[in-house]
Amino acid sequence: MLELRNITKHYDGKPVLAGIDLQVPPGEVLALLGPSGSGKSTLLSIVAGLEMPDSGHVLWNGVDITHTPPHQRGFGLMFQDYALFPHRDVFGNVAFGLQMAGQAAEQTAARVRAALELVGLQGLERRDVSSLSGGEQQRVALARALAPQPQLLMLDEPLGSLDRALRTRLLGELAGILRQQQLTSLYVTHDQEEAYAIADRIAILNAGRLAQIGAPQELYRAPASAFVARFLGMHNLFSAHVDGGMLHTPFGALPAPANLPPRVQVLLRSDGLRIGAAGPQVLTGELRGKQFRGSQWLVQLAVQDTQIEIELPSSTALPALGTPLQVSFDLAQAVHIFPDE
């Protein structure tokens, strides 16, 4: 069980982490998701012991390890650029942690073989790491982090430098390995698809603060702020003001819930609209664009000079571009209201 208590960190006087509290129960894969500069990699370095927090504590199973040097923590870290040892072959890289732990040669060899098998690189023991492809290097880095059987595995953008096709394939394999090993893991990424695919819970970081933490579907269903919504790829975010019990948005007025501040942000979920005027709420606009996405249509609708994105089932029959289209939605399901940023 990893516990972070009120971690803060500054670089050159600028706050990078401003009071992070976090718990990762055993066996959980927690994704740290955030844009670049949000402090997620710094948080990882602090957990690894490569950096010291300015204040706050890192606890492992209740023991304060804030000042324990990295080599005594028994955590594994897979670096974004892999940081493979260029002067050691594949075996030498994967065996390093076991050798540092003073394992016997036969045992080391067996564990290296097992780790390489796990990542699908059996037989490459004597290869020079610089001769490997990007995907193979990524697997060696994973095997190297896994071989000493760390209590906690950290992965810093492990798929960041790979091309898209390879990424999708390795993501599935990586998720499988983490599940199979039942490893407590911290997975840093800036890609929400990656976080959805791999994490039990996702912690979203914004400018050194925890913006929201929860299971992927919770975050998707109920983003806690406009930042989280935007970061999760929800585009229909608008400023709105409250006046006379009505919420005035760029796409029209809606009945306002009680106790709203005068200025708010409104999210209209792109997956919460249906075609037709069955409503409780109905919008009429002009069809401006449509992209076929296999299972869905992605549709752009112009309502009162405002463009709204809508996802519709691909079975929907769409009219020609430039023609009027009516859509309807349910206020409780399709609209989120956030305080103004």
Binding site: G49, P69, H71, G76, L77, F85, M100, P148
Partner: peptide
């Protein structure tokens, strides 16, 4: 980072 990698793998 290469040196850091070694220290996370248990090297003093």
């Amino acid at each position: 980072r290469i040196e850091q990698a070694a220290s996370t793998l248990g090297a003093s």
